[in-house]
Design a protein around this nucleic acid. Structure first.
Lengths: 110, 110
DNA sequence: AATCTATATCGTAATATTGCAATTAAATAA
DNA sequence: TTATTTAATTGCAATATTACGATATAGATT
């Protein structure tokens, strides 16, 4: 054991969990914050911004990329990363949907 | 190594990461789904709904509770769980904020 | 009290994540 | 060609997560 039993859940549930998991680390939230702060995409300078070694950041970027949250394009010998809006929309809609569903409930307990 | 270096990041970044991480597992997304589907709080029947053993679900509920995403109240010899809206709002606002920030950008790359 | 029912905790095995030094790969600059 | 720069990959140690059987706890029921 130890491995997540993804086969028991729906594709949507697994997708959402993957996205949430990808953002479930402060370094990856910090990468997102930086991507939003700077007006263009990041091209390497993120290594100087975060208090982690270059291989570690490269790994975090890889995970964000695997989840589909960011996309990267080669820019000379540097690589330019930025947020992928389409995938982010899934999360946005999910939480907005939850909030409206909760609001409609009469909250008859807790 | 192996432990997350939370001390290097802001309280807000760590908080968001904790919340996202708590939802970063399909079983916990499924628990959320079920909490929204049934009109009242769940009282035990979630063990029959999910394809996981009772101790495993208890553990997942504990993690959601630790993150502040759900709250539980004793209801006889059963326990009644439901979503905590206030904490959920943090996530909702975060993703809405990101989306609006991205929309304002002229997307001059990628 | 004895029993049932619901949930939590303990202990532990299997697996995943985090972090980094060392190295590699690929494009640029000299 | 030979650096130099930038980012990915490899390998590995430390730690965390996932899952569940066994057991414990707490309230309800008989």
């Amino acid at each position: 054991m130890g491995a997540t039993k993804t086969e028991h859940f729906t594709a949507k549930q697994n997708k959402l969990a993957t996205l949430a998991k990808a953002l479930g680390h402060p370094a990856r939230i910090a990468i997102f914050d930086y991507l939003l702060k700077v007006d263009t995409c990041i091209c390497g300078d993120i290594v100087n911004e975060l208090p982690l070694a270059q291989p570690t950041i490269s790994q975090h970027l890889k995970e964000l990329k695997n989840a589909g949250l960011i996309k990267g394009s080669v820019e000379g010998n540097a690589i330019c990363y930025c947020i992928d809006e389409t995938v982010l929309e899934i999360l946005q809609k999910y939480f907005n949907n939850i909030s409206s569903k909760i609001d409609m409930k009469k909250s008859n307990c807790c």
